[in-house]
Design a protein around this nucleic acid. Structure first.
Lengths: 128, 128, 128, 128
DNA sequence: GTGGTCTAGACCACA
DNA sequence: GTGGTCTAGACCACA
């Protein structure tokens, strides 16, 4: 079952947004696969130390996007075809990279500087 | 005078945070230089379609950080030494790049894929 | 918990300044001690008949000075070491006394007259 | 004619309030006597570096209190009988001293401490 | 026109 | 219920 161990909340964005993003990234990575069970709202709430309503909001929005199916009395499950996974992954990749490119350009950083900065940072956190 | 044409609000973060970030990026880029005038709270409010108080909050926080000086009845101005510019630029660069690296790693994207994605995106928006 | 019963607003200064001053005086007096709870923004707003945002502004500025700590969903609390209390007290004492001395001198009142005036007034309100 | 040399604005109160107070203190001190001419709004505005409207507001309020008489085309003049002077002086004295006593009491300062603090401060600024 | 303060009140995240 | 953000808009001090 999906765990939220890798999710560290940062306060810069609403928590429900961070939960949604975490699950989408897992789908994109393939670590969260079709049919996988999600922990209950209560469990996630306890693990992250946040309010159950906040988790509920994230789950509800994922369900509205069709990425989760909930049945009362049963665990919620991930519902993703291969196409959906590819689409989610493509959206996240592209949007993250575009955000960085836009920021770097606005700050007058060249492509070469950006690429070498990423090379350096990639190594730094290698063990993680 | 500084324009806010390039700023598009995204709803993922508080508006005043986005305004602060936009101005800091401009400082980092050097396109917003020491002594430059800022448009009035009202003008920014109208341009972005947000409340004047929201702009006021962003400007006030920038003033508390020492990046802006305001005087009643006169336009507010940017106040940045070279050292400050370098510091602001370094903070933004590093934090943006780290964010991307973390996201890509979690999605199981390799360094090489990330770098080539950025190469491609960089060209796409080249004329901008 | 801290009450605002003794605070009467006078219109000569911004309301948020008066709220800040009231709390600082309490800290100086030691009647507002480290860890003490502050009433909520809404409660103060209702008690003083001012807008919640005005109270919020005062609380936020006290938090920026490090005299208050706020956490969403929980009461705000006073955070003052002994050193801080002493410093706040010293600043208020000196500035208040200097204000009176300057006013009395400009009005041509002698030191002796001032001192006896204070003696008399001190007794008048003794029971308070 | 009345000069505003001794008035230094402090930003803690509205400027028009400080102007009113300055004139009332002069009346209380007897340095501003019945029939004395007041400098024009424009002159005061230039001397203090403030907006003419601000001076106008102060003069208008003093006129409403009956302490000034204005005639178009002629200089404004102070209008104070001895009784009025005594009353103004009494009000200022009492209100200033009461303000200090209240502040000191709220801060838990004893009468003796207050009196000696004033003694010390009175000497410090003696030459002024 | 510009900055600063304030009102009245909504909505979200959180305990 | 508590803190934080935001809207819509008024009024004052100032250039």
């Amino acid at each position: 079952m999906l765990s939220f161990d890798q999710l560290t909340l940062d306060g810069a964005q609403p928590i429900y947004v961070q939960i949604i993003r975490y699950i989408k990234q897992g789908i994109a990575a393939g670590t969260i696969a079709n049919g996988e069970e999600l922990p209950s709202r209560r469990a996630v709430s306890a693990l992250l130390g946040v309010n159950p309503n906040t988790v509920q909001k994230a789950y509800r929005m994922l369900e509205e996007e069709g990425l989760i199916q909930s049945h009362s009395g049963a665990k919620s499950r991930i519902v993703v075809s291969e196409e959906v996974q590819t689409k989610v992954r493509g959206q996240l990749l592209r949007s993250d990279a575009e955000t960085l490119v836009a920021a770097m350009k606005q700050m007058g950083v060249t492509k070469e500087e950006t690429l070498s900065l990423l090379e350096i940072l990639w190594k730094d956190g290698d063990t993680q």
